[in-house]
Design a protein around this nucleic acid. Sequence first.
DNA 1: GGCCCTCTTTAGGGCCTT
Length: 315
Amino acid sequence: MSLSFVFCGNFHLLSNSIGSTCGIRLLKQHSRLIYETLLTSRRQQIRHFSTTVLARSTRKGSKQSFSNNRHLHGESVEPSIEVFKQSELEQFKSLQCYNVDDKISGVKTEWPATILVFDIETTGFSRREDRVIEFAVRDLMGGKNSTFQTLVNPEKDVKNTFVHGISNRMLCRPDVPRFRELIPVLLQYVWSRQMDSKPVLWVAHNGRSFDVPFLFYEFRRCKVEMPGDWLFVDTRPIANQLVDSNGSKLSSVSLENLREHYKIPLTGSAHRAMQDVTTLCYVLQKLTFELKLTVPQLLEKSFRVSDLPAARHER
DNA sequence: GGCCCTCTTTAGGGCCTT
């Protein structure tokens, strides 16, 4: 399957899914077992997480459904729909490689993997000293409940608010989960999006050096092992293959530079997790289309958390 | 910290992530 086919088709869905938000409410019935398994050291109260989440209830094999009770807590976690205006959506639509409606109409797309584009905001660059303060992910399949985002209480001072605008005041609230409380929700999100026994492929920019090792350390601090069958792909080395109109390599392959290279409009604040996820979704679409990368080829470039030097050193 | 590039490989500097 051509990745451009997938992404162009999904681009259509992505545009539609931008307006798709709902809340996630942890259901005691489904979450208690995981909570009691993972959180033995401290009795936890079931919390309302404000997110744009979660399970596609019609997905075959989905292990559970979620209520759609919206429970947003102010400025801290705003659903992505609020940062997009109709005019901006029209701009996104103009980025389509071709009219996918004609090509995918009536065609049942067989996805070889669940592709989850994600991003994190942290208190700094050190995976040992710093903590995750925001997590966002978008399932490229799109549709209702395809996104998930939440702030995370790092249990330490945030000193880089100037980067992302996330302050201590926004995080030190009873309704903002700690990472150990986020884990079961994240696992449920992935299970709800996974198709049959097909692989889950996480995509992040500079993910091999930053996002994935950061998550590894967060999971390890919570004494929970990251699923060994999760696959990850880093878009940064892929972007290194790009050349400009003069045939020269791009001077920079930062996400910001790639956004400008592809003339993707900036909506909302950069360095907020869901905003960067949305940008990366479009960059990924353009990138794979330009380099003619297929999903199997993307899977070939993937790695597992056990491949990380940080994980190998732990053995 | 990992990857990429080059004035390289017995190395070192820059990029990218918050």
